[in-house]
Amino acid sequence: MSTSRVKLAPATSRLITETYGQLDYGALGPVYCYEGGDEFWRAKRGPCIRLGIQIAVLLKKKLKRNGRSLYIGAGVAELPPLVMETVELGRAVKPHNLRKAEVTALNHACRAIPITFHAGDAAKAKGRFDHLWVVSVLNDPERFPNLSPLSYGQGNPLTLNPMQFDKERRIVRALVARCMGKLERPGLVTTTTEEVIWIAEWCHQHGVAYRVGKRYYQTALVGDPICFIHIGEGD
C-alpha cells in the first residue's frame, strides 16, 4: 500500500484539531518563546496540525497495532502522532517531557483521550517499546548549549567550552543508551537528520543493523527535518 493511499480517519483528524483547540496557549507561550507568545501560536498552530498529521499518516503505515511507543521530549507538535497511535492503532504511548508547565497544559487538553504526558526522564520509563520518538531532543540548544551548535554545523572554535561540551556529550550518549536499550528489534526510531549520528553510533557500538530512510519530512516548530531509522532488521 502506498503512503499516498493511507489516511487518518476523519474522526481522528477532528479529534486532533479539537485537542489543539483545548490547549492553553497563554500558558504555553513562555515555554516556547521569550515574547510574542500569542503571535507565535497564531502562526504555528495550523502548521502543527497539518505537518503533524502528515507524520501521523507515515507512522500509521510503519507501526503495528497494539505496540508501545516511547516519546522523548514530546510536546505540542507530537499530538497528531500520539492521537493517531492511540485511537487508530490501539497502541500504548508514553510521552515524556521535562517542562512541567507544558505537561500540565498538554494533559489538560488530552483529558478526553487516553494519553498522559509524564513530567520526567524518559530513560526511566518501564518496559519495552517497538518505537522511539526522539525529535529535537539530543540537539536542544537550551539543554545542550555547547553541543547543539556543532549539531547544526555552527560551532565556533573561539567560544567552544570543551569541558562543558564533553559533559553534554556524555549526557546525550547516556540518554541514547538507556532509551535504545528499551527498543525491541526490529524497531523504529523517529528522529531528526541532526540526531541520526547518535542513534547510528549506538548501533555501531552494539553491532546492531540499522537503515536510515532516504526521505525527510518537514516539522512545524523547530524546523529540523524528520526521518525514520529501522533498527535491527535482519538481526
Results as ranks from 00 to 15, higher is better:
residue 94 K to A: 15
residue 174 A to S: 15
residue 170 R to K: 14
residue 92 A to L: 07
residue 187 G to E: 03
residue 130 D to P: 04
residue 181 G to R: 00
residue 110 C to L: 15
residue 147 L to C: 01
residue 90 G to W: 00
residue 118 H to Q: 12
residue 126 K to C: 00
residue 81 P to R: 05
residue 192 T to R: 10
residue 107 N to D: 12
residue 79 L to K: 03
residue 195 E to Y: 01
residue 164 Q to I: 02
residue 144 F to K: 02
residue 87 V to Y: 06
residue 159 T to L: 12
residue 165 F to A: 11
residue 149 P to A: 00
residue 106 L to Y: 07
residue 115 I to W: 04
residue 88 E to N: 06
residue 120 G to N: 02
residue 127 G to K: 02
residue 108 H to K: 15
residue 161 N to W: 09
residue 129 F to E: 07
residue 139 N to C: 12
residue 142 E to R: 08
residue 166 D to A: 15
residue 82 L to W: 00
residue 149 P to S: 04
residue 84 M to I: 12
residue 185 R to Y: 04
residue 194 E to N: 07
residue 89 L to N: 11
residue 87 V to D: 01
residue 196 V to R: 07
residue 101 A to P: 02
residue 108 H to Q: 13
residue 101 A to I: 02
residue 176 V to C: 08
residue 97 N to T: 08
residue 171 I to L: 13
residue 113 I to H: 12
residue 162 P to M: 10
residue 119 A to D: 12
residue 195 E to Q: 08
residue 82 L to D: 08
residue 135 V to C: 09
residue 182 K to P: 01
residue 101 A to S: 04
residue 194 E to D: 07
residue 80 P to R: 03
residue 170 R to F: 13
residue 124 K to R: 14
residue 121 D to Q: 01
residue 147 L to N: 01
residue 140 D to K: 01
residue 180 M to C: 09
residue 85 E to A: 15
residue 105 A to M: 05
residue 168 E to F: 11
residue 87 V to M: 11
residue 110 C to M: 15
residue 167 K to G: 09
residue 170 R to I: 08
residue 101 A to N: 00
residue 97 N to C: 10
residue 200 A to W: 08
residue 97 N to M: 05
residue 168 E to H: 12
residue 177 A to T: 14
residue 162 P to F: 09
residue 121 D to I: 09
residue 81 P to W: 11
residue 88 E to R: 08
residue 89 L to S: 03
residue 162 P to V: 14
residue 100 K to S: 07
residue 162 P to D: 09
residue 132 L to I: 06
residue 118 H to S: 11
residue 87 V to W: 03
residue 152 Y to F: 13
residue 185 R to S: 10
residue 159 T to V: 13
residue 142 E to H: 03
residue 189 V to Q: 12
residue 83 V to A: 07
residue 145 P to F: 04
residue 92 A to T: 12
residue 153 G to Y: 07
residue 111 R to F: 11
residue 82 L to F: 07
residue 84 M to V: 12
residue 82 L to M: 05
residue 122 A to E: 06
